[in-house]
Design a protein around this nucleic acid. Structure first.
Lengths: 161, 161
DNA sequence: GCCTTATAGTTTCGGATGAAACCTTTTGCA
DNA sequence: TGCAAAAGGTTTCATCCGAAACTATAAGGC
C-alpha cells in the first residue's frame, strides 16, 4: 500500500476497490434478477421502502445515492409490476408517497435475508479484530478520504485535447 | 460490522463499498474525460498498454477485468483517435498486438501521475498501521471473501416468477 | 395577491453496456 | 490430410444510464 511511482492497475487502490465491489454486487444482483426480474436500481428502491415506508421519490434517491432519474424509472417499473404503490402527499401535491404492496413485501422478505447472507459469508473470512478495522477503515475512507479526494484541484488548465 | 438482522442500506457492506468505490472512480474519471475525452474503459486500456506494450485484446481484457466486447469497443475508439496502434501477431493471425502511439504515450504520461495523486490523497487520511490493515483486508476480501461468496448456493428453487 | 424562483418528478436523447450470435483462424485428433 | 471444436475479435440487439429540458406545484419577496 506504499505509493508506487508507476501506475499498475493490479495494485491501484481505486481499481481494486472497484473490482471487489462490483464482484460482490453482481453476485447478489444475479440472484434477484434471476428470481424476480429485479434490476439493481429496482432492488435498491424496494430495499429502502421495505425499511422506511412512505418516502417520496427524492427521499429514496437520497437514501440510495441514486439520481432522481434512475429512481423515477425504477419506480415506474415497480408500479407497473404492482410491487409498490404510490399516492400523493397531502399538503404537497408534488410529492409522492411510496410504499410496498403485499407482493413487494413478499419479495423484500425473500431477498433481504439473502443479501444479508452474502454479507455474512463475506465477513466470515475475517476474524473479530479484522472486522473492527474494516469498519474503521471504511468509515475513514468514506468520510475524510472522500473529502480529501474532492478537494484535489484540477491541474493548471494548460495542455488539453 | 456485527451482522444486523435487518437490512439497512447505509450499513450494508456491499452497498458501502460500492458507494466508496464509485465516488473515487468518478472523481478520477471526471478529470480525464474532461481533459482528453477518455471513457473509463478507454483509460483502462491505455493504462495497461502504457505498462505492458504488445498485449492482445484478450490479454488486455484479463488485466482490466473488462469483457472482450468492452475492450473491442475501447480499442476501436483509441485506434480511431490514433492513441494506440494495432498490428497482427506473427504466427497467430487471430491475435492483435496493441501498443501506444506517441500521442497515446503523451496522454498516459499525463494521466497516470494524476491517478496516483488521487490514490495518494485518499491514503493520506490513514496512518501507517491503518494502511497495513487496509492492504490485508483488501487482499483477504478479494481472495477468500470472493471465493466464499461465489460458493453460496442458490436458494432451493421453490417459488419464483 | 403577483411573479420570480425553487422543488418534485418525468421525458427525451445520445451514448454505454452485456449477452448472444457471428466470422475468421488455429488447434486437436482421428 | 480433414474436420470438429475452440479461441480471438467484432457486430447486433435490447437495455440501461445520466444530463438537460420540461411540466406541475409550492414558496418567497414585495
Amino acid at each position: 500500500m506504499s505509493q508506487p511511482r508507476q501506475l499498475d492497475l493490479e495494485h491501484f487502490l481505486p481499481y481494486r476497490l472497484s473490482l471487489l465491489s462490483n464482484t460482490i454486487s453482481q453476485a447478489i444482483a444475479r440472484e434477484y434478477e434471476a428470481r424476480f426480474g429485479l434490476s439493481v436500481t429496482e432492488w435498491r428502491v424496494l430495499a429502502v421502502l421495505g425499511r422506511y415506508a412512505g418516502l417520496s421519490a427524492v427521499e429514496v434517491a437520497e437514501r440510495t445515492a441514486m439520481d432522481k432519474v434512475a429512481v423515477s424509472r425504477a419506480v415506474a417499473r415497480l408500479l407497473a409490476n404492482e410491487r409498490i404503490r404510490r399516492s400523493v402527499h397531502s399538503g404537497d401535491r408534488r410529492r409522492s408517497v411510496l410504499a410496498l404492496t403485499p407482493e413487494g413485501q413478499r419479495i423484500y422478505d425473500q431477498v433481504a435475508p439473502r443479501a444479508l447472507e452474502y454479507e455474512r459469508e463475506l465477513l466470515h473470512v475475517l476474524d473479530a479484530e479484522e472486522r473492527i478495522w474494516l469498519e474503521r477503515l471504511l468509515a475513514k475512507l468514506s468520510g475524510d478520504g472522500l473529502e480529501a479526494v474532492r478537494r484535489i484541484p484540477l491541474p493548471h488548465a494548460g495542455a488539453a485535447r
